[in-house]
Amino acid sequence: MIRQVVTSRDVEDAPGGELQVGLEDVITPSAHEAASRRGVRIVRSDGSPAAPAPAVQAPPTPPAVAPPVTAPEAVRGTAVIVSVFGRNRPHVLAEIAGAIAHEGGNILDISQRIVRDYFSLLVIVDTAEVADDFRTFKSDLEALSREGDYFVSVAHEAVFRAMHRV
């Protein structure tokens, strides 16, 4: 169900001193203020009174310091980049995605480009749930490479971060 926002205008327009709202609707502080000023009761659809929402604490502001200059970060996390390029034909994406699914990889993002007869495909995969170790995952996917068809390469995201981000 879509949550509605109940504002002071809704309170002012309410006929007969009562305003019915949905279970999940959000009642703004100004609506509560208007309701108490005008003696309007705001009632949820299940009949319960709509209490003012507890104040939400603002997230702590991080101190304003320059990020430390660091060496390339360690190889951590489970995101890997599967890069594929070659001659375009039907089923390429299905084959790659199918193989990743078969290994238990979770696709986080995909980017694909076609230039004339050729394609390039990047798939970011979270390997946290992959059953085998990284080396098996990598060699299974890279086994899809065929001369004259397409080429698959799998590498941890850290190597791209080291090379392209300071």
């Binding site: 390029f85 990047l122 970011i124 946290a128």
Partner: peptide
């Protein structure tokens, strides 16, 4: 454990393929 929130690709196609080209070719 829930996976860390994904921050987006972060690299352009060009950057990724530059790295792959350097290693493979």
């Amino acid at each position: 454990m829930a996976p860390a929130p994904f921050q987006g690709l972060g690299f352009s196609d060009q950057e990724v393929f530059e790295t792959v080209r350097m290693v493979e070719m």
